[in-house]
């Protein structure tokens, strides 16, 4: 990008014309998507971000609020609780899901009998109805007679956790459910990326006497970095935006133990009708995610290896 601008400045007219036509070709590729995306996503987003500096009850006049909404965030208990919970959730879900999905993908990229069956089955939790997911998960962790606690009791734990019915354990329970639900999804991306690794690299490494771990470490991991990069960003973003799973599993409870930012955003908008304030919470979420994403992008150059094969 930087170098491109430099060459543009020093370019001769004919070169500039070539760059112009190059730009036009590129824009023609982007236009069909950009048109719909700008009208139906970017414009509404700009509107709601603008709202974060306004007061609006969703029906009457909009009035200017300046930074009032953001100042009010500081004294909002629920916001602080939700922010903490969200960070907790992200910190738990992202690394665990990434590790599990990579593990599954590598495992299922081996010549294993019934491979297609396993691949399909591991993707299943993602397509299952959320109600079923919540029911089954809560049933596994049912406090009095669920299999998990039965197991813990036979292992000698006298007072096993009450999981989603307890303030302290509700969040870990949700995190585990989300890892379990999401790992098949990201496994699919890893699987697709694994197909891009030329088999010949492994063959020549074998000839040179590399063992399986060395091959994984020095061929698989580096060549998967574009996918890892994508997954780490998407997973971070979607974990910050967690909503549906929380809604059906705990609805933010017990009390506010699993209340997260998007749930709070939704409640302030549709229970309290403070649309401006609600947008300001979303802005904080947006800022957080963007800071992390931009950092990831800067680091990308250090660790993501694109097409060096």
């Amino acid at each position: 990008m930087g170098t491109m601008k430099l060459t543009l400045k020093a370019a001769s007219p004919s070169k500039r014309r070539r760059q112009l036509s190059k730009n036009l070709v590129a824009y023609s590729f982007i236009l069909p998507n950009l048109l719909g995306f700008a009208i139906f996503t970017l414009v509404p987003i700009a509107f709601s971000l603008g709202l974060s500096f306004m007061h609006w009850d969703g029906a009457n006049e909009i009035s200017w609020a300046g930074l009032d909404n953001f100042k009010a965030l500081r004294d909002d208990d629920t916001f602080n609780i939700a922010l903490k919970n969200t960070l907790w959730y992200v910190g738990g879900t992202v690394p665990l899901t990434m590790a599990c999905s990579l593990g599954l993908a590598v495992l299922l990229n081996q010549p294993i009998r019934g491979r297609n069956f396993f691949r399909t089955v591991y993707f299943f939790p993602y397509v299952a109805s959320l109600v079923a997911v919540a029911v089954v998960w809560n049933m596994l962790f049912f406090p009095s007679a669920g299999p998990v606690n039965e197991l813990l009791r036979t292992l000698g734990v006298d007072n096993p956790p009450r999981w989603s019915a307890s303030v302290d354990w509700a969040m870990p329970t949700v995190v585990m459910a989300s890892v379990w639900r999401g790992m098949g999804y990201y496994m699919v991306i890893y699987l697709a990326a694994l197909q891009g690794i030329p088999q010949i690299l492994y063959e020549s490494a074998s000839i040179e006497g590399a063992n399986a771990w060395q091959k994984f470490r020095h061929i698989t991991v580096p060549l998967l970095t574009p996918a890892t990069f994508f997954i780490s960003i998407m997973l971070t973003i979607s974990s910050f935006k967690v909503f549906d799973l929380i809604l059906v599993m705990t609805n933010g409870g017990p009390g506010r133990a699993t209340n997260v930012l998007v749930l709070h955003t939704y409640n302030t908008a549709f229970r309290q009708f403070k649309f401006g304030y609600s947008s300001s919470i979303a802005m904080v979420l947006f800022a957080l995610v963007m800071i992390i994403t931009v950092i990831q992008f800067y680091m990308e150059k250090r660790w993501v290896e694109y097409s060096q094969v």
Binding site: F40, T41, F240, F243, V262, T265
Partner: peptide, 15 residues
């Protein structure tokens, strides 16, 4: 990328 970071619940009314 930024648009992905905004929860949809926030902009469903303008949409």
């Amino acid at each position: 990328l930024g648009s992905i970071a905004i929860p949809w619940q926030v902009y469903m009314i303008p949409q």
